[in-house]
Design a protein around this nucleic acid. Structure first.
Length: 217
DNA sequence: CCAACGATGGTCT
DNA sequence: GACCATCGTTGGC
């Protein structure tokens, strides 16, 4: 049987420590790295975040890959709001991408949530992922959004609940860095971050990745 | 294992 | 009309 944890009913993350608005309103790159290892809960499903990418706006290095790079548009408007809400967009005609808006109001920034390890709601995720093997449920941004049931109405939803929340989880031992995946500009910027996991996407590219920091925090 | 390719529709110039 | 912050399938090793 698929079980949510080795202990049966006991949750394996700290249900008391919800990441607050102050967390998301830090600089985008800091939020991206700090998100690794935390627990993303959407409805009856939950995953441990293992891979993210940062997309930055004004302030610091210009990011040509960001949706905010050519100014505010109807789609990218949420990226300019204050950190602490979701930015959900539709791409390739069939997939939703789940991002967390970061930084202060007026400063564009978001973190794409690319992969996670299933923690809760295994049966529901399997169903949403068309009965595929578990390793294919959440090992990429389109797959993850589908497994979590992310829909267009989640755009601009609060990350402080009730629909979406992130709880503090175990700090990772190591963080790895690489270029971002699937973009044509800004490929020199090492703004993809991940921790060792079978659910990290794009295994081939991981060979090029470098360790950023050892010892967590 | 892995490279190539088609699906499919919103967004922006 | 071109471009996608992708994925599943196919066909070759």
């Amino acid at each position: 049987m698929e079980n949510s944890s080795a202990n049966g009913s006991e949750k394996n993350w700290d249900h008391k420590k919800v990441l607050g608005a102050e967390f998301y309103q830090q600089k985008t790159l800091d939020v991206a790295r700090a998100l690794l290892g935390n627990v993303l809960v959407v409805g009856k499903t939950a995953v441990r975040i293992v891979e993210v990418e940062a997309y930055c706006g004004s302030g610091g290095v210009f990011d040509p890959a960001s949706h905010s790079s050519r100014g505010m548009t109807p789609r990218s408007a949420p990226m300019f709001e204050a950190g602490g809400i979701a930015y959900v967009y539709f791409i390739y005609g069939m997939y939703q991408m789940l991002n967390f808006v970061t930084d202060q109001e007026g400063v564009a920034g978001a973190v794409l949530i690319r992969a996670g390890e299933p923690i809760e709601g295994h049966a529901l995720m399997k169903k949403r992922r068309n009965g595929l093997a578990q390793k294919h449920w959440t090992s990429g941004p389109g797959k993850l959004a589908q497994a979590l049931g992310i829909k267009p109405h989640h755009n601009r939803a609060s990350l402080l609940g009730p629909e979406i929340q992130v709880f503090q989880g175990e700090r990772p031992d190591a963080i790895f860095v690489s270029p971002r995946v699937g973009i044509s500009e800004g490929i020199e910027l090492p703004w993809r971050f991940f921790i060792p996991s079978n659910y990290v996407s794009n295994v081939k590219e991981n060979q090029l990745a470098k360790p950023l920091r050892l010892g967590g925090r």
